[in-house]
Design a protein around this nucleic acid. Structure first.
Lengths: 366, 366
DNA sequence: CTGAAAGCGCTTACAG
DNA sequence: CTGAAAGCGCTTACAG
């Protein structure tokens, strides 16, 4: 385990009795275009293997002017859908012979994202898939993103909206998904449906960002039946599981009388929904019998909650693959074909809205 | 958004009317040791800012012979405790002015880990924290790990056992934790306690790896009461949530008669426990009333399951920090002080074993 | 107080 | 069929 001296290409060349150029040619598969003889190639390969030679990354990157690495900037490392997205990026990167590294964008702390974006400007990687979901409204972090792109590092967004024609983005159909979710609840007979969303996002119909789109889809589903949701059913709160739990308790506090309380909750996403289920459990309100809960995203754990989550699904891994595909188009000098693309979503019926049970054991809702 | 021409140090030097050396001195905070005048420094800094200069990472790394990056090799990106560990590594790395990148080790696919380990040998980073938990038994992946260390890249393990005196490792007290968990169940009156573990791990008392240590702790808790667990209570299966779910169903199939069925399950970890809770729900067996479930690791979501998970806890972020501390000792030329370190664990009582309720509302178990 | 020069370890166009 | 040489963009010991 003693640290060996550094094995450079010159050491290999000396060992094989050839020049460094020859070693480089052989090891980079240019043996025939450089017309290196069979036997020389063998000798070089043997020497390299014997010495455990690995070309130095920094030197190679400097010379080639590319690193062979793409980076995924993740909203939060522990975010469940991000892991699937990274897997999608990896699939594509592998096909192109690239490695992928993941770095954390600090979740709610935009400063971390800004620093990360700035640190990527030095050519440490050849391109970055940004999965922070923070660029639909322009802020200093988006400035940092544009700086990165302007400095020559191709960038592609996923689960977000493009801030610039030169930057491709892919997102899911938030409006359609929210519409589907609400419609599912309406069809199950629910009329008082709560809509949970983030406290810090604008909700005007023309506002940017997924919360506004989701709210619109929710209202559209009601409108289709000639109905309008009560503004008191709109609950705004924090992110993650804890946010969902807190919003659930907030809703129950707002509606102490069970007869007026919403009978269903459209949570902002699956994590929120998990928190909502937990909040209901704490309040002694059973899901789905007393209240239905629907999520969004269909994260891998959604099928394992009790009750299993009814949610809006879309292909997470493919989302990563599509974002990576766009990135590689740019990497190869191509142009952005379509600035914002949208992936369709579908309803995934499990147990948390009672529909499964309804079909199997008879209806529980009017 | 047009891609700008590359701004090198020479461009900055020209703009400021000085040499590249001067720019380098100023920008690296060596202005005074190199005795650069106040005004020149200003001029250089201005020019750099104006041009948006960022030192090229590859060139700098090549010259300095270090990259300023440490890598975390994660068993699986979506693994919940790994995210916390990466956070711990980040905390420490930040203090040292290092960036951290995360790469995926492919979970059960050891080939991915081997390739990743090999790809890190080219000096793409200065050190790596390995969080794959796969090195307590020696296999080809451990060979790749030793190769990496031998090639001069410092390595530190977390949630694993060290395969070599030159490699520090930090793990939690698996034996003690399992003992605590089992003892908790015994104290609650349970006598038929199932132990869930992985199918592919040796369980002999002296076998390497956490499953053997856990099994030992389980038996020790029984032994303390002069008891011995029935071998039929040992269930072996797959990983992740699905593994837990499957093992739960396996147990119920093995014990069709509820009067003989174990009244408690010590799951291998929190993910397994989540699967077990799900399996119980599917089988119509209520937790904790009809069966108690205990986990291991206290992942962030453990408090949000229904019922909330009683589990064995330990500081996940600090585990990452400690592994990173060891890495930086090596990075600075230090020696491994202690090959294998162990972090203590503690019992985290929530709802899934009924203890919470027992205290509050009277006992449910004999 | 500042600059010229060497060199980190590669790759590649070119010469022979 | 193979090698000498230039150069990628930095940093740093050294000279003045």
């Amino acid at each position: 385990m003693r640290r060996r001296p550094q094995i450079t290409i010159d050491v290999v060349a000396a060992e094989a009795g050839v020049s460094a150029s020859t070693v480089s040619h052989v090891l980079n598969g240019r043996a025939d275009t450089a017309r290196i003889s069979q036997s020389t190639s063998e000798r070089v390969r043997d020497a390299a293997r014997r010495l455990g030679y690995t070309p130095n990354h920094a030197a190679r990157s400097l010379r080639r002017q590319r690193t062979g690495v793409v980076t995924v900037l993740a909203w939060r490392l522990s975010s469940p859908f991000f892991a699937d997205i990274a897997t999608g990026v990896r699939n594509v990167a592998q096909r192109h012979g690239f490695q992928v590294a993941v770095i954390d964008a600090g979740a709610l702390d935009r400063e971390v994202e800004i620093r990360a974006l700035a640190s990527l400007r030095n050519g440490i990687c050849d391109g970055v898939v940004v999965a922070t979901g923070t660029h639909s409204r322009r802020g200093p972090n988006t400035d940092a993103l544009l700086e990165l792109a302007a400095s020559g590092t191709p960038v592609s967004l996923v689960l977000d909206r493009s801030p610039d024609p030169a930057i491709p983005a892919i997102d899911v159909d938030h409006l359609g998904g929210s519409y589907l979710a609400t419609k599912h609840l309406l069809e199950l007979g629910h009329r008082r449906i709560a809509h949970f969303t983030f406290a810090d996002s604008p909700l005007e119909p023309d506002a940017p960002g997924s919360p506004a789109a989701r709210f619109l889809g929710y209202r559209q589903a009601f409108a289709e039946l000639g109905l309008e949701p009560d503004p008191a059913w709109l609950v705004r709160g924090g992110r993650e599981i804890e946010g969902g739990r807190t919003m659930a308790h907030g809703l129950f506090a707002r509606f102490p009388n069970p007869d007026q309380r919403p009978t269903a909750i459209a949570a902002f996403n699956d994590r929120t929904a998990i928190g909502v289920i937990r909040g209901c459990y704490e309040a002694g309100i059973t899901v789905p019998e007393e209240i239905a809960v629907i999520g969004f995203h269909d994260i891998p754990t959604a099928r394992y909650t009790t009750p299993a989550l009814t949610t809006i699904g879309h292909p997470l891994i493919e989302l990563g693959e599509m974002a990576a595909d766009s990135l590689f188009v740019l990497l190869q000098g191509g142009e952005v074909a379509e600035r914002d693309r949208t992936v369709p979503v579908s309803l995934v019926v499990r147990e948390s809205c009672g529909a499964q049970r309804k079909n199997g054991l008879g209806g529980l809702h009017a």
